[in-house]
Design a protein around this nucleic acid. Sequence first.
RNA 1: GCCGGUGUAGCUCAGUUGGCAGAGCAGCGGUUUCGUAAACCGCAGGUCGUCGGUUCGAGUCCGACCACCGGCUCCA
Length: 640
Amino acid sequence: MPRIELPGDRHVELPEGEPIGSILPPEAVAARFDGELVDLSFVPSGDGKAEPVELSESDGLHVLRHSAARVMAQAVCDLFPLARYAIGPPVEDGFYYDFDLPEALTPEDLPRIEARMAEIVAANQPFVREELSRAEALERFADQPYKREIIESLDETEGALGERVSVYRNGAWSDLCLGPHVPSTGRVGEAFKLLKVAGAYWRGDERRPMLQRIYGTAWASRADLESYLTRLEEAERRDHRRLGQQLDLFSSPEELGPGLWVWHPRGGVFRKQLEDYVRELHLARGYDLVVTPHIARSVLWETSGHLAKYADNMYPPMRSESGDYYVKPMNCPFHVLVYKSRTRSYRDLPMRLAELGTIYRHERIGTLHGLLRIRGGTQDDSHIVCTPEQLVDEIRSVFDLTLEILGTFGFADPVINLSTLPGQSIVDEEMAARATQALRSALDASGLAYTDAEGEGAFYGPKVDFHFRDAIGRLWQLTTVQVDFALPERFQMEYVGEDNRRHRPVMIHRAILGTLERFSAVLIEHYGGAFPLWLAPEQVWLAPVADRHLEHARGLAERFRAAGLRVYVDDSGETVGKKVRAAQLMRAPYTLVIGDREVESGALTVRDRSGAETKGVPVERFIEALVAEASSRSLEQTRW
RNA sequence: GCCGGUGUAGCUCAGUUGGCAGAGCAGCGGUUUCGUAAACCGCAGGUCGUCGGUUCGAGUCCGACCACCGGCUCCA
């Protein structure tokens, strides 16, 4: 009789052949046996440690969603008998399943599938785990080519089953699946919803067939489902494309071309604040600002290796009598030319060349997405040229600057990845190892936690990425730091050392915000369009009650402008209610209603974004407070 | 690039089985001069994404193209 250890240091004897679920609480949807996720029907062959897996933990939700995916596939097969089903894993917040169907699914099919799922759930069919030999499994899935391909491609080392594969059967339907699953379809419950249909390549490979993917979500309770759907709505309200339109910040007219954007006056003001801040801070941290053109001869891109490794993402060349010119997809070769414009001494190093450099990349049309994925954008780019000895300290100073800049916007606690070199690189292994080691040392020395991501680096070197969480918990990749031994080599970069001999420097590529376009999109979503005062297009919005108050309002506006504040006077002749509404819709930080009271008293009535109103604020105090709030780049509104 | 969806006024969207292109908001003009998220009246605004086809007749049906939206990493 296996002796099972339960949480709380309890031990029970499990009768031979009894499933582990029989000694776990009824809330359990699965179990963990010696750390492995298993079904409740799992029968231990020996002693071990068992824990219940419940819906209150992520493993429990994972199992629930996996099972929900199965139920969905079953429903689809019921409704579309010709369906061939491929894979259906749980994903963050939900699940999907990929199908090969003769007809195209439409969003209208989703309610039908959901209804069928509900029937399957109501039927409460047990999920029965079976272990079959490969031959049996191939037989079982004779008319399911995707399942057969998976079975055939399974390598014996995969899973603990060796030559056997596991199949879960419920009712007349079965699926090849590792499991575990909830004990029966009834446990999937009613807190699920199908969200969208999309295309997806079989095994993510664009040379393989395009399947139809249905995304769904499933939760422990109705309330959890509702709050998830509310979260989705909140994300939609914050969508930078929608806010960009509503707030009149930018647009991408069709005549311009996909992935290209024009910034309107309100967006332009915001962007200037960003740019000024970035430039100012870089100067203060020992960077030098440089300016470089948008195009260069092909020889530059040959030397840099871009034509060999990056040509797919570059616009085709412009031909002229002096040769072919390419629009730049990166700034690095230009900064190398700045470096090489004269003989450099070790005394010049580190040289930190920075530029808000505009680049153009011919991204595939289907991957473009608002300002987040664009074809033309401006990076806060810098290339630090230093000696190998300076490398780790320089990387650390980039990390410091990253935390400082992003902290200003309210981003903290980055999730950091160290990406090692991809196969297709222009760097030899020894260089790559040194570069990776430098990044690792800098991360360790800075006390930053990180995880390794293999093969994700740029073609010229390994990199460290910083991801930051926004106000509603989504992660955005912003900062990239790359160490590069290759370009200095390719461009024969040198410096004269203390020993009066020539040495090869190392180069760090880094962008902290990424592109300003992308970063702006992230900021807009992070703030929901309600920018902190220093970034707001209008800082003070004046709403005169009647036309006779316009003159007083204009006088105030002049005083505010003289103090360096950005002001808008609503002289529309609409009602105050309408003016206040307009100000709120445009996310004005401070709205001043100017009427008889204000004209007489000379004081201000201040309305902030929350709608809270303070009467009798002296003009001088208001100006002082706003100037302080803006110049400190505060994320909080002033309390009066 | 591929799969699916969507393109009607500046914006958000109606538009029956093919039969004279609509509303609200925004804009402009007038009236109102008002105290905190939408005053009233009027005017103007369109090659219905583009090109081609079917038809007596196309926003509507067919084809091609363009653009946008959702996806194409999560591996039985």
